[in-house]
Design a protein around this nucleic acid. Structure first.
Length: 149
DNA sequence: GCCAACGTTGGC
DNA sequence: GCCAACGTTGGC
């Protein structure tokens, strides 16, 4: 079992959208490293920190769980979609996504608070220049965060 | 809106 | 394979 942090822009898809939908396909990832995490390492049952980015209050806002293995991201094949990739075909898909299911919406743990905990100082989202939308989380970090929520 | 950091693209 | 140019991310 692994632990992950997954970023979403709330103007795009928020924790409240996930409360409404209960589960969602994590489509639109167009970064190879993030894709590889989903395709090669994620397993059903893995735990997810749902993180709001590029917004007035960036931070952790909920817990979720990976509920499918990775499968081809449908939006790469749709010419009308903004995530269309002309180099992808159904025979040789480039982009994959898992689905995640809501565990619970939590209080907001702001990025500024995360920064203040020595136990979390090694988290990828705190490292300068980090832009990866999906990052592994250490079991210790997961336990610490859940304990603070 | 700014801008640092990073990833991708494409000419050579 | 190099690397400049460009696009994107994301906090502030």
């Amino acid at each position: 079992m692994r632990y992950w942090l997954m970023k979403s822009e709330p103007s795009d898809y928020s924790i409240d959208d996930l409360v409404r939908d209960r589960r969602v396909a994590w489509y639109g990832v167009r970064n190879y490293q993030a894709r590889n995490f989903m395709r090669d390492q994620m397993q059903v049952g893995d735990k997810v920190l749902f993180y709001h980015s590029s917004c007035p209050q960036p931070g952790i806002v909920g817990l979720a769980e990976v509920c499918t293995a990775a499968f081809p991201d449908a939006t790469q094949f749709d010419p009308a979609h903004k995530y269309f990739d002309p180099k992808a075909t159904p025979e040789t898909p480039r982009w994959f996504n898992v689905e995640v299911a809501l565990t619970q919406k939590t209080r907001l743990m702001p990025l500024s608070e995360i920064r203040g905990y020595p136990a979390l100082e090694r988290m990828r989202i705190l490292q300068k220049g980090n832009r990866l939308s999906i990052t592994p989380v250490d079991p210790d970090e997961w336990a610490f965060i859940v304990g603070q929520l």
